[in-house]
């Protein structure tokens, strides 16, 4: 957790003060363990140290839709503890053997922690929430498009904006990218090859290069 954004700008001593407070505790969980259920009022959030946690929507017939995956470095529940109702909208469960740090949300309000530390910690939490919000907006922007080509193009042009370069690396494999784009994996591969043949992009595994200088300026819906 030391390298997490939540402890950005913390000295070693400050970090130790925080970790030795009663607001943090580490725990191991087995696959299938439900760490918070839909409708629960959350007064804590988690840090994924290792393993995988997912959030799922439940249907009346008992089936589930996986909505979000939390990998090491992520904070399931951090947004929920700051909402008005603090109610979990989904079920949080462990997907792969996980080591989690359980964080009591009281940390943001307690007088037991030095005020300056508390403020720094709150500010870092805020940055995490803000990054998440922008990331989601980009994803909405992508999913908003109907055609596969359009989704790929919107995604790639956002990546280009973010890295301020026509050359960038996408940290997802094809399977993850197809899930992100909400499309079928083999159609995604086909479309990427087509775009390569058309001279729009170059790509090798996760490394993408946008070749067309007008890329991102045209509407893609009708292609």
């Amino acid at each position: 957790m030391r390298k997490s954004l939540l402890f950005n700008n913390f000295t070693e001593e400050e970090y130790d003060v925080m970790m030795h407070s009663p607001y943090f505790s580490a725990d191991s969980f087995s696959p299938g363990a439900i760490i918070a259920d839909e409708g629960d009022v959350l007064n804590k959030f988690w840090y994924v140290d290792s393993g995988l946690v997912h959030a799922a929507r439940m249907y009346r017939d008992g089936s589930l839709d996986l909505v979000q995956l939390y990998s090491p470095g992520d904070y399931p529940g951090l947004d929920i503890v700051f909402t008005k109702t603090k109610k979990m909208p989904l079920r949080l469960a462990v997907a792969k053997d996980a080591k989690l740090v359980v964080c009591d949300a009281g940390i943001f309000f307690t007088a037991a922690i030095d005020a300056a530390l508390r403020e720094k910690f709150t500010m870092n939490a805020l940055r995490l929430l803000a990054n998440e919000s922008v990331r989601k907006q980009v994803k909405i922007d992508v999913l908003y498009k109907r055609s596969l080509r359009a989704r790929i193009c919107v995604f790639l042009s956002h990546m280009r904006d973010r890295y301020e370069s026509d050359d960038f690396e996408v940290n997802m494999n094809r399977e993850q990218l197809s899930q992100y784009l909400g499309v079928n994996r083999s159609s995604l591969s086909n479309e990427i090859s087509k775009m390569r043949e058309e001279g729009l992009i170059k790509c090798r595994k996760g490394q993408f290069t946008i070749l067309d200088p007008t890329f991102g300026e045209n509407r893609w819906e009708d292609t």
Partner: peptide, 15 residues
């Protein structure tokens, strides 16, 4: 933080 959190849930639902 409250505003961003509510917004985050709203966006997640839309997603």
């Amino acid at each position: 933080a409250h505003i961003l959190a509510d917004e985050s849930i709203r966006k997640q639902t839309r997603l």
